[in-house]
Write a protein that binds this DNA or RNA. Structure first.
Length: 424
RNA sequence: AGAGGAGUGGCAGAGUGGUCGAAUGCGGCGGUCUUGAAAACCGUUGUACCGCAAGGUACCGGGGGUUCGAAUCCCUCCUCCUCUGCCA
């Protein structure tokens, strides 16, 4: 949710920025938001005036009572009826306007950073960096969904039997390499100064709103209606919401958290040609990094996070590229997003394995996540997060790119974690 | 899950219908004193909104109600604690 003060002050830039997302009715919505805010202020002033008068009368009644002037007090009580009714009506209207304004603001996405290219779809994303050699696989190389069968390490049919499609069962070395990757990612993050968090895997509605999954992506989360809780689609949700309604001071900053969690996504309507095997799942494992920063530091932090994620990919010996997402392909709440994609040699495709974003104050405004510095004034902070990393596609790339006669070679950095060098 | 109790400022803790945004203590910040520090003493110390400002309004777990007036009374929901039960 964009802060209304920013909308007021930077109206033209915001409208121009939103156009990069092809958000066509930005001008109209922003105009409406400002009108509603004007109305809100008007109502607030009016109501406050009514309440001031009411409070004054009430106080004087109290004084008269104490002085024993009961009749005068009774007389004044008669004055209040109209005032009460008027302020009640004003209050109701104010509440309605505030709700309307908030609902409207929820429909306006974040404004892209100046470096974000305009564009409609993934085709317009900008490749800004590429690393590594595309491996030349021997004849007869298999895609990962064949490899997992061949070595019996991941079983989709079993998952379907006990749960449903998109819930794989990891077996033997398949399970062990999952655990190895999780620990490898967590240990790296700890070394980079992140504090580990193990959050609940379900969140309440307020948390869904805090990070912007609600109301925008309601249908994408598993909703447990009996208790009105949502299974988390990413650790971003519980971890970022740790800082909901919080005022931090300089000692608390920067916040750098890392969390491993399973992620649950309904992926309604997004199954297509390229979603075989591990490419898209309803449940998968991910290690997520989250930062809370001062506004002036947030873009440096984003670069740091991007470099950090790239470092992981290099250690895993995976060829990758970095994309700067275009306006049309960016998430609703993000101001700037880098996607890291690894090359999956047997599929001959790039697979998104990480998405690193700066949300600026968009999430912080919803969360009421603020900072109070030396000047005693509070200001909104910036939030950032990134996958570091999501497991299934990393595993898919490792399986495909490292297939040899002798089996699948485990990247050497992982061997201390897996305890084996080959999956065979 | 049943019975009972409780939710007040950063923390502890008073306050049961009016002058209470809220005593007091601790902590924080500023100062006096000191070569420096500690101690002591003095002052200060919540958030949001409206307003150019002066100032005003709201907030004592959330929501609703009674009343001229609610931290205080009523309803409801939530959370925590104790005991009993169940359970990894």
């Amino acid at each position: 949710m964009l802060p209304i003060t920013r909308i007021r002050e930077e109206k033209e830039q915001l409208i121009a920025g939103l156009l990069k997302r092809n958000f066509q009715n930005a001008a109209l919505l922003i105009e409406n938001a400002l009108k509603l805010d004007d109305r809100r202020k008007e109502l607030k002033s009016e109501m406050d005036a009514q309440l001031t008068e009411l409070n004054t009368i009430s106080k004087s009644i109290g004084e008269l009572m104490r002085a024993g002037k009961k009749e005068e007090a009774e007389e004044r009580k008669l004055w209040t009826g109209q005032l009460k009714e008027k302020s009640k009506n004003l209050g109701d209207e104010l509440q309605a306007v505030e709700k309307e304004l908030q609902d409207l603001l929820y429909t306006i996405p974040n404004v892209p950073h100046s470096s974000v290219p305009a564009g409609k779809s993934a085709d317009d994303n900008e490749e800004i960096f590429k690393y590594g050699e595309i491996p030349q696989l021997p004849d007869g190389a298999l895609p990962h969904w064949e490899l997992i069968r061949k070595y019996d390490i991941i079983d989709f049919e079993l998952g379907t039997k006990i749960t449903g499609a998109g819930f794989p069962v990891y077996k033997g070395k398949g399970a062990r390499i999952q655990r190895a990757l999780i620990n490898f990612f967590l240990d790296n993050a700890l070394e980079a100064g992140y504090v580990e968090i193990l959050p609940p895997f379900m969140v309440n509605e307020a948390s869904g709103y805090g990070t912007g999954q609600l109301p925008d992506k309601e249908g994408q989360m598993y909703h447990m209606t009996a208790d009105d809780l949502y299974l988390i689609p990413t650790a971003e949700v519980p971890v970022t919401n740790l800082y909901r309604d919080v005022i931090l001071n300089s000692n608390d900053l920067p916040v750098k958290n890392v969390a491993y969690t399973p992620c649950f996504r309904r992926e309604a309507g997004s199954w297509g040609a390229h979603v075989r095997g591990l490419n898209r799942l309803h449940q998968f494992d991910k290690v997520e990094i989250v930062q809370v920063r001062l506004p002036e530091e947030s873009y440096q932090a984003l670069e740091d996070m991007s470099q950090y994620v790239q470092g992981l990919l290099k250690k895993l010996e995976l060829p990758y590229r970095v994309l700067r997402l275009c306006g049309g392909d960016m998430g609703f709440t993000s101001a700037l997003t880098y996607d890291m994609e690894v090359f999956s040699a047997a599929q001959e495709r790039w697979l998104e394995v990480s998405s690193v974003s700066n949300f600026e104050d968009y999430q912080a405004n919803r969360l009421k996540l603020r900072y109070k510095g030396e000047d005693k004034k509070s200001q909104l902070l910036h939030t950032l997060n990134g996958s570091a990393l999501a497991l299934p596609r990393i595993l898919a790339a490792i399986l495909e790119n490292n297939q040899t006669e002798a089996g699948i070679r485990v990247p050497s950095v992982l061997v201390p974690y897996t305890g084996f060098e080959f999956i065979n």
